[in-house]
Design a protein around this nucleic acid. Structure first.
Lengths: 147, 147
DNA sequence: TGACAAAAGGTGCATATGCACGCATTGTAC
DNA sequence: GTACAATGCGTGCATATGCACCTTTTGTCA
């Protein structure tokens, strides 16, 4: 190959996405640390509050994450009493995830830190620029859904 | 908060980045699978070919990845004989990573699949649009470096 | 109703990620 | 030359990620 993978200025879309995601995750995680939550955990709680109780499959679809990954991500949250997992009544296969009171409280505390992280990010990257970036990233996420 | 984390259209930059990175990773990994390489592993090999033999710290810095993460990522590559790890002569702390012949061969095989992945991605997202996105993502990665 | 497809979820395996902490080696100053 | 900082790397711990494969439970249709 004359090599399409030479990468001074990073030609691989996937790599560029992963690097950026790693850096952003570190930034947000640092901010969220005082609340005892990781970025992923925070987003699980946020989505449960936003959409109400629901099953693992549904939430996974909502978060564009693999079902089995989410199934494991929620375990620490249950262990810490932030969410409750109950078996479905009509459909015994289902497991309903619901935010607990403690989870709600933790989420409230964490929200402040998340805002700080978001502000930190956007102070460096630009508010409008970030909004535009998110719009593009949404399109990228959709690509995956179609596969 | 009146809630900055409501996320129909995803307001969290970090989450947007992670979701997009996950989807892209799945796409690229599917394409690279026949070569027996993950996206991360492919990029390690690419960087070693591009920059020549070097230490873990140096490569980690080059790839904008945590040193300890990279230290573990290279283990499967060494196990499979794609890279060689040798102790430094002048400085005994150092470990030099180098592409082996087998690694070079594997990389050559994988390059084709990577091109397919890249083409697949850009056919859906747009070539110029992808280039613009990468440029923005590079800026995001730089934010992390400054912390 | 009995066979079979479809859906919800779990598990094993392998890798990816990074923080806190520790160990050995090297560089530096006095 | 010795104390001490700095550097290069490893480990323990916890979480994140997803594929292949499996079990249980529902839905469907003849």
């Amino acid at each position: 190959m004359s090599s399409g993978s030479e990468s001074g200025p990073q030609l691989c879309n996937c790599l560029a996405l992963r690097q950026a995601a790693r850096q952003a995750t570190q930034l947000y995680d640092r901010h969220l640390a005082p609340a005892g939550l990781r970025t992923t955990q925070f987003s699980v709680l946020v989505n449960l509050r936003r959409l109400g109780p629901m099953t693992i499959n549904r939430l996974a679809q909502e978060m564009a994450i693999d079902r089995t990954t989410l199934g494991r991500n929620i375990l620490p949250l249950e262990r810490d009493g932030l969410i409750a997992i109950s078996q479905g009544t009509t459909d015994k296969r289902r497991k309903e995830l619901a935010l607990t009171q403690e989870g709600t409280a933790r989420l409230r505390r964490a929200a402040k830190f998340w805002s700080n992280a978001q502000a930190d990010f956007e102070a460096q990257f630009g508010v409008k620029r970030a909004a535009a970036l998110r719009a593009e990233l949404r399109e990228v996420a959709v690509i995956g859904v179609r596969q």
